[in-house]
């Protein structure tokens, strides 16, 4: 959910681009991190862990803990909380440490 109403922070811009998460289009705002667009769309699972296949999502939000990594445009282990969205970006729920096959 986007924080539209706030007691004093300025109004926010409308989402202006589209990114794809596991093939599904979601709206995004230029310049925001992928994680923000995911949260706005109610998506909180970023990956499944390597050993036990457990779901993980955002934890520290500042690019230090690496829990939020996903495969982005074919590149695995991209920290979604600090990586800005791009139009038509392909974001995929990552399995384990991901794979470099088909990476650009």
């Amino acid at each position: 959910m986007r924080v539209v109403n706030h007691p004093f922070l300025p109004a926010i811009d409308e989402p202006d681009i589209t990114i794809y998460v596991d093939g599904k289009p979601i709206p995004a705002k230029s310049g925001e991190p992928i994680a923000a667009a995911l949260l706005a769309a109610g998506i909180r699972v970023c990956r499944k862990t390597a050993k036990k296949g457990r779901p993980r999502g955002i934890f520290c939000g500042i690019g230090r803990c690496t829990d939020c990594v996903m495969t982005v445009d074919g590149v695995p282990n991209v920290r979604t909380c600090v990586t800005p969205v791009k139009p038509n970006m392909m974001v995929e729920t990552q399995n384990g440490l991901g794979s470099w096959v088909d990476a650009k």
């Binding site: 924080v3 955002i58 500042i62």
Partner: peptide, 12 residues
């Protein structure tokens, strides 16, 4: 993290 999301990125 929650603080960053709500105050900087403006998402809950």
């Amino acid at each position: 993290c929650a603080q960053t999301m709500i105050n900087v990125h403006r998402v809950l």
